[in-house]
Design a protein around this nucleic acid. Structure first.
Lengths: 142, 142
DNA sequence: CTCCATTTCTTAGGTTCCTAAGGAATTGTA
DNA sequence: TACAATTCCTTAGGAACCTAAGAAATGGAG
């Protein structure tokens, strides 16, 4: 089999598939899916008001994807979507008490995944890695 | 909004989503989807026998995902799946004449996407980038 | 003030990924 | 030789993405 020239696009897609499977494994014994766990982790780190569009931006997903995921999280009792007085288009995402129960586990799991992922990679290489990805995202700006 | 500490997992997932949308845009005017175009590109570069498992490995997708995609490509007349004499479990993936018509366009499109993605990034940073991703994939070895 | 553009979110319908389960052929081992 | 494990692929059903279309509120330009 002839392997194609190294392709950054292919590398990223390939690693992303592997990562998704790991994330799904973490959540497999819990009440929520991989992407819901990831969203929980994000929300737990926030102090101010958070809206759907913040989640869309954080993971580069489309409004429809975010909307559907949040609907499921709401149905499971992990979040509420509340109106804010200053703009009726916005719905503030609020964690429920039930969600807070998962705090420690979610943080632990995602921290461990990140550690596993980056194990053995020198800090200066990680810096380059982040810089390169940021540049790539700019290059694809939509 | 408080941004989480830079997370390699999040960066990869985010970039991967952006890339997928670009790939889908490339294929939007053609007879095949983004992932099918990517597979076509891979198959066009091969000389020896290629099987489904080679495609699974190339993009880190599961057998069920590959099987379904190849079924659709077969239905569209882009490939055939042929038996080989030495092992009846294997089905050789063969491009049809119809697929060959797309050769130039597929190669051009994927080359341009890769160029866009990596524009302005020094060669030595790309080397680090590839090395880091390879290490990450090893770290996630399943 | 009015109306048009923009922003935010939702719904509908589709693709690409997944796990789980299993059929069929091959390979390894007793 | 037989039988168990492995390999390769498929099917069924679910999850995480997508585009397209649009509702509802806000903001901006005349």
């Amino acid at each position: 089999m002839i392997s194609l020239t190294k392709s950054a696009a292919r590398y990223v897609s390939k690693l992303s598939n592997k990562l998704r499977r790991q994330l799904d494994m973490l959540s497999s014994r819990k009440d929520f899916s991989g992407s819901q766990g990831r969203t929980l982790h994000f929300l737990l780190a926030q102090t101010g008001d958070i809206f759907q569009k913040d989640i869309e931006e954080e993971y580069s997903i489309r409004p429809s994807t975010a909307s559907e995921m949040l609907k499921q999280m709401e149905e499971k009792g992990l979040i509420r979507r509340e109106a804010v007085p200053y703009d009726n288009r916005l719905k503030k995402i609020v964690l429920t008490d039930k969600a807070l129960i998962y705090r420690r586990q979610v943080v632990e799991d995602l921290t461990r995944l990140e550690e596993t992922l980056t194990r053995g990679i020198p800090a200066e290489e990680m810096e380059v890695f982040f810089r390169v990805i940021e540049r790539m995202m700019d290059n694809l700006a939509e």
